[in-house]
Each structure stands twice: as C-alpha cells, then as structure tokens.
Write a protein that binds this DNA or RNA. Structure first.
Lengths: 169, 169
DNA sequence: TGTACGATTGCGAAAATTTGCAATTGATAA
DNA sequence: TTATCAATTGCAAATTTTCGCAATCGTACA
C-alpha cells in the first residue's frame, strides 16, 4: 500500500528541507503516490502531462532527481529501467529473477539485520529503504541450474519508444 | 586489484555464451580491466577511442550493456553516475556516504551471509557481486546526526559535459 | 496585505544514448 | 583454406535527458 497523499508529514519534510512546494511538485508527488510501487518516468510524466500539459519533462526529471536525492522518493534501477516510488518508513526489498523476471519480496527485518550489523561493525548507517537484488528464483534454478546461459537472458523490459506528443502541430 | 587481462577464463566464458570476441570487445574489456574499479562510460570510451578511433560510442554502449547483462562486468549506479568494472569471483561491496562521499568497503563475508540466509529461506540465489549501500558514515553522523539536512547533499559527482570530439569538424 | 529575494519553471538548445540498417567479419564446417 | 551465415559494427537518424537562462512565483518578513 502506497503512502497516502496528501501527506502532511511529507509536506512538512519538504518545507523543513527548504524546498518550495510548487503546484508542479505537488502534482508529481501525487502522481508518484497514486502509481504505487515502481512507476517509470514515462508513466509519471504521462500522468503529470495529462493533468497539467504545461509542465515540461525537464521539470519532472529535475524533481524526481531532487526528491530522490533528499529521500522523499526512492529511485531504483530495475532491469535496465529506473522506477520511482514514495519513500516509506518501512523498507521493502525485492529479489528479481534474471530469467523469468519474477519478483519475490523479502521481509524487511532480514535485510535490516544486515544493516544493523554493518552499523555495529563500521558505524555506518545505511539509509536505503528499498533494495533490489538480482538473481535466480527457485523455479528457474530447478530448470537450469545456477548459471545463466546465453539464451536465458531477456531483452530489457521497458517499452522502447516513448514518442512523446509534440506540442506544435 | 583488478582481474588480470588477458584472461583465458573470461574468453572461454564469452565463447561459451556464444558471443564473438571481436577486436572491439577485446579492447573494451582490456580498458575496463585496466581502469580497475569504477570506470565511467566516459573514461572507458576515451581510452577506447584513443586506442581505436574508429570504434563508435554506440558500440561501447552496446557492449557495456551486453557484458553487464551476462555478468562479465558489473555496472553500478553510484551517485548519479554509472560505473563499470570487470566481474570477479569475490564480491565486494561499498558503503558510500551521502554527505562526504567517503567510501567504506564491506567484507564480502558479511553480505554473503545475508544472501545465504535469503537462499535458505526463499530458495532464491542472489547473483550480484557488487552492491552499493548509501548512508551516512561515522564521521558525518558525529557532525550532524542521522538525518540528512538540506545542504548536506552534494551535486552529482560526474563531470558534466563530455563534449566528445566530432570527427568531421 | 505588500515587497523583496532567491528558488523553480518552461523554453529551446545542447548533449547523451539508443536504434535501424546495410556492410562487415568472426566462427564453424566442409 | 574457403565458403557460409548470423552476429556485430559504424553510421546517421531518432529519441531521451540535461542544461542555460530569463521570467515566474513561493515564502518570509515588514
């Protein structure tokens, strides 16, 4: 379940960071929230553009980047594409299979335990609330063993051409 | 220490996967090997281009992508830039500080333990040999506490304009 | 409220990355 | 060695992403 929006906590956070909460930013956050997990740039931009055609891609790029940088949202590299989602208190992590692209969720506690250990040992505080670990899922291992054969790898999943609508003509 | 090159094992791996070992690919691998850890696209392309000016950026992009896909090299998203390096037997992982960009290496064993647990619990085999965990390092925590303030975040590290030399003036 | 300042936006241009395709060239088997 | 065939390359074009800058527009404060 995505974080609800409007989200007073999020707004407070934005202002505390010294950011202005512009209509553009508000909309972008709403869209990301509405998309739930793993929204691509295109999905986000499409929604934003539909709701407010004057908002430029550059603004969306910039804000996604800014929000990520300040951990209001999380950006994740998945299978050749980048996906975004609202940051949450609870972490959640995925195992994604190289072969079949299946996803398995990992209980946060497990990963958190590693971070706690790292902290104890090095004093370093890991901040990521969302990690993606690539590998091979149980089913595919059964089929082909642990090594990735030549033809077991897939093309990038993301749709190729976005072909945004030009404004003029 | 980067993996030595030429590397018979790597060549065998390439051929086993059904890839042709073209001069372009050979050079790219040599360059990546020569760069050691964390080579950016630009660094790689520059070296390649210097050694063989006729090789196009597209070829380098394609092969970096292909090699990553088949785990001959590892591509990693670091601080807004992507970096590549030759894959190795031994994993190695980094903690990178959001504030000062300091790097701390994590003993592979520690992370591996997590993966082993995941395997035991889910049957999923994690394949990544190189993970990057972002967070706050001990020194910066001491200075500012655990929360990331507005001005504690840095611009992207990667050099902005690449401005490749055009061939035809 | 009204004013002032600096953050943010949209635009167009620049730069980076990907793609289509014809030509080339490894690798295999005769 | 030579012929064959599909993988790979280089180019140019298409597409995506970033950047510079003047104009706006939130916010803070009087």
């Amino acid at each position: 379940m995505p974080i609800p929006y409007p989200n007073p906590k999020l707004e407070r956070r934005i202002r505390n960071l010294g950011f202005r909460l512009t209509p553009q930013r508000d909309l972008i956050l709403r869209v990301v929230a509405g998309r739930g997990e793993h929204a691509t740039f295109d999905e986000i931009y499409d929604d934003v553009h539909q709701a407010a055609p004057h908002i430029s891609p550059a603004t969306v790029y910039r804000n996604l980047e800014t929000f990520s940088r300040y951990r209001l949202i999380h950006g994740n590299e998945v299978a050749g594409g980048k996906v975004y989602e609202l940051a949450r208190e609870e972490g959640h992590h995925h195992l994604i299979c190289h072969k079949c692209w299946g996803e398995i969720k990992v209980p946060d506690a497990q990963v958190r335990k590693l971070f706690k250990q790292l902290d104890k040992q090095t004093g370093f505080l890991v901040l990521g609330e969302h990690f993606v670990f690539m590998g091979i899922c149980p089913d595919c291992r059964r089929e082909e063993g642990d090594s990735l054969g030549r033809f077991s790898v897939y093309p990038k999943f993301s749709v190729k051409s976005k072909k945004r609508n030009k404004k003029h003509e």
